[in-house]
Design a protein around this nucleic acid. Structure first.
Lengths: 187, 187
DNA sequence: ACTAACATGTAACCCGTTACATGATTAT
DNA sequence: ATAATCATGTAACGGGTTACATGTTAGT
């Protein structure tokens, strides 16, 4: 039934604490679990319909003042049970595909400069996201050991994102310093 | 023309140094660039046909003693030029989707034990790959600063994999130590 | 002969992306 | 009115995965 990457479970997980509409979910994916899961709104609306048809979600329309109505989805009991079971199933990882690393295999005197530029730009992006994550950590997860169990899990996921970011910054610095010598030699 | 992740360029990059057959490419993807790019043999055979049709690769059959014949592909001049241009195009990243992090959002007293088991298993896997990468580094990239330009790029890609692995091990340790307290409290 | 490994494929299906469409509300 | 934003979709396309198919060589 579930062959592909678990978008269904990602959505249901987002609904653990609060009922959300499609557009809210799409925004949530960018912010909360965005660093290890992404989905477009088209994907989400489609999946929501499937999940509702399976009886794992229920839907209700909500009037909003100043905005068009939204359709809010919530987990059913069957949905919660299915999600709880899913945790014991096989775990898949879909490793990163990064064209930047591929480009590095094609490095030469002509394109060093361009690639150095790309690395620099990526470093900036990652640093910005890292600031956000660390702000969240400081605000909500100051004392991890005292958190309730489930929040410990969320904290660890966030930590994973922070570690990855820091690792990437360190790698960028190493790369830029190694490539600086190439650029000089070229000049 | 090229909308999706650059499998075509990944293949052509693998053919920069040596001509290879489909099955050799499939094996190469697992070993050399496997940590940031993966492709099944079905995907590769299909893409090879497209690339040959475009005139970016040429093919020739090679007799092997003790094995069935293989069809070896090599870059044409047009292929090399197209690859060199591609480096200046936009760079896409397809971030990791990791169900383990998603499962962490669903952490509770009942499943902690299972999740701890999964983290431990993943730690083992990553450590094994890390040993391989570090062996390669020690053997071929002992003195990065003195490498020819393109090998500097390959070295940096490898370094990226090593950094990621080390970061992941550190994260596992943090996670396991935080979750150990949960398991004890449960007992 | 039979099995196992190697090498190259084909076909069906589904997921995810891209592009486009529709209606509601607010602001100017 | 018109433009801009929000919210919810539909449709087409292509890439990737899964399952299956075919032939070759080596070993027993």
């Amino acid at each position: 039934m579930e062959q592909a990457m678990a978008l269904a479970q990602a959505i249901m997980t987002s609904l653990l604490d609060a009922d959300l509409s499609g557009s809210e979910l799409a925004r949530d994916f960018e912010k909360s679990m965005g660093f290890f899961w992404q989905a477009s709104h088209q994907q989400i609306y489609q999946e929501l319909r499937k999940l509702a048809a399976k009886g794992w979600l229920n839907k209700r329309e909500v009037n909003q003042s100043g905005k068009p109505n939204k359709i809010v989805y919530g987990l059913t009991l069957a949905g919660r049970e299915s999600l709880a079971e899913w945790v014991y199933g096989p775990t898949r990882v879909q490793p990163t595909k990064d064209e930047l690393l591929l480009k590095l295999y094609n490095l030469n005197e002509d394109n060093v400069e361009h690639i150095v530029g790309e690395i620099t730009a990526r470093r900036e992006e990652v640093m910005k996201r890292l600031y956000l994550y660390e702000a969240v950590r400081r605000r909500h997860y100051d004392d991890p050991a005292s958190l309730p169990v489930r929040h410990k899990g969320v904290y660890l996921a966030l930590e994973s994102g922070i570690h990855q970011g820091e690792q990437f910054l360190a790698w960028c610095d190493e790369a830029l310093s190694l490539l600086a010598s190439v650029e000089k030699r070229k000049a």
